[in-house]
Design a protein around this nucleic acid. Structure first.
Lengths: 338, 338
DNA sequence: CTGAAAGCGCTTACAG
DNA sequence: CTGAAAGCGCTTACAG
């Protein structure tokens, strides 16, 4: 619907369309200051808005960054109801916008391969969050676009990574529990998948136990899904297995554990300590307020945006960028009972 | 990066580009079944992906729907950390995708008017969520695009609305509290703005009181912001004003009230009843689980997508679509103490 | 049922 | 410092 075109600007300013184009794209030393001045005034007074489709078509660059986020498992919905994704995406959008790029969001995994949608819009680069499956990854890879994977452990030379240092993070989290005197420490997670984040966190958990001479008990590893409901279920098993502390690899799971424990009249942290991961807003809202591992989600999203643009604009970035983690102490972790 | 073009398909299938175009766009009775068949095979085997920028440029229709969501107040971020927005957007995206449209998301209110971004991509229609300000609205309006406003009370002939029936919803919520014997019922809300949702809910609250012969006490209306932290603050005032029940116009606020009450060792619902609004996932995660007014957020998002496409495709839709609401009883509302 | 031509609004070499 | 020409990959009337 943008009415006025570059041609009309050119006519009004008495220059050629190409000079207008140069001014719009701020190409240096291509027009005299006076011409630039004049053209800019015409642009403003006529309310010119560039047609980005035309630009993309002519220039082979869309300034569009494709962001791929998995669908929910059951429904065909963006996984935005997981606040984690929402925050990362918000961070990405903000970083892109600041540098004049746009975000094209696409869910993935449901019916219809929507990497295609991104391809059709000629995105310049790709950010994929939490991708596991090889099949899907291959489809992304085929595009040969600058690609940044967030929270993935897929090994590939063409691709760049951003994630938290999961192994050390999990180790520190577990040590935090050990420092409170716990020895029967459960790990409550989503599915342990090959090349997934959980695998790394499990390794960190085991290393911490080992360092403290606590024997590893596979019965204390409870793998389900990254959901509140799984946390509720897990509470039962924690009780049955006489765990005194639970390290949950997501705040959503931890919130469920808290709720499950309430339902069974177990007090937190008097009877059982619970430590989360993510530091989502919800971690402050549950009762008691959740101690958790903060992974600066929004900053992570912004960094993802920055990295992918650096990559796109030809600056070289590290193949792997690791973010650090802080433990936030609130009310859900206490000393083990005598 | 889509390598193969319509021309190459045409060459391979020995037809003209225009016939290929007709087949791609499924225009009926424009090609013989055999030709269609042949072309489709070529398309598949060559892995053709239409270039949507080119299509948009040539056809004056982008199949792109602009979705406008307010920024957070302090930061320049998408308001995606409010799970409400995240869910609505997820619903919209799903409805659009099913009908072959794409969503272009734009935050608004921060630096740089990003309605412009949407205009530059030639979006075919607009969905704006929770818009108040006239200035911003005027910018949207100027586009003369099919526009759907979600949760706004801006009166305008060119624009369509989708929202919950806020006044009756608030009335029923208040009645629910009255039915539990409460008479000192506070209303805890965000800012009461002209033409905002809160204004309507306040009216519904007052009507319920009136119908029950409970005098309206302005001191029991606590207006702050739609945040967890405001809820914590509000808890103090609820205690000071001896409210026995609080109707919070957002679950986020209600979660804060719960936390504030815990901090002061007030029991919910024994001492004070709390009713939320939205039925966000977090309402199950707090303690005690929050009774709340369910407004079927995701369905609302999907409906928003459907409505705007109907509008765009020339079907006539109601100028105002109102959604109904259900009260979800959980643990935070109880009978008033004797 | 199929096609040749023109054009959407930009940018990209190439001249001058 | 500025411009005329060609072209990006599609679709839209218009012919036949």
């Amino acid at each position: 619907m943008s009415r006025v075109t570059i041609k009309e600007i050119a006519a009004a300013a008495k220059v050629s369309p190409m000079t207008v184009s140069n001014v719009i794209n701020a190409r240096p030393s291509k027009a005299s200051p006076e011409t630039v001045q004049r053209i800019q005034e015409v642009i403003r007074s006529l309310g010119y808005q560039p047609n980005l489709s035309a630009r993309a078509l002519a220039s082979k660059s869309s300034r569009l960054i494709g962001v791929v986020v998995p669908f929910t498992e059951n429904q065909n919905q963006l996984l935005l109801d997981n606040p984690f994704y929402a925050e990362v995406i918000s961070g990405i959008e903000s970083a892109l916008r600041q540098r004049g790029y746009f975000m094209m969001l696409s869910g993935i995994g449901g019916k219809g391969s929507d990497v295609d949608a991104l391809a059709q819009w000629n995105v310049d680069a790709l950010i994929a969050i939490g991708i596991y499956r090889e099949a899907l990854f291959e489809r992304l890879r085929l595009r040969h676009l600058p690609t940044l994977l967030v929270d993935s452990y897929i090994a590939d030379d063409e691709v760049h990574h951003l994630r938290v240092a999961d192994e050390p993070a999990a180790r520190r989290a577990t040590e935090h529990l050990i420092a409170h005197g716990h020895r029967r420490i459960a790990l409550v997670t989503g599915t342990v998948r090959d090349g997934g984040v959980v695998e790394q966190r499990l390794a960190g958990y085991r290393r911490a136990l080992e360092a403290a001479d606590i024997p590893y008990d596979p019965d204390l590893v409870l793998a389900g899904s990254v959901t509140f409901d799984w946390g509720i279920d897990a509470a039962d098993r924690l009780i049955a297995r006489r765990a005194t502390a639970a390290f949950c690899t997501a705040d959503l799971i931890a919130a469920g554990v808290l709720t499950g424990m309430h339902q069974r009249s177990i007090s937190i942290p008097q009877d059982v300590s619970v430590l989360g991961f993510d530091n989502l807003p919800v971690s402050r809202m549950v009762y008691p307020a959740l101690s958790t591992v903060d992974q600066a989600i929004r900053a992570k999203g912004q960094l993802a945006g920055k990295l992918v643009l650096d990559l796109l604009e030809g600056r070289s970035i590290a193949r792997e960028t690791l973010m650090d983690v802080t433990i936030i102490e609130r009310q859900s972790v206490g000393r083990v009972r005598a």
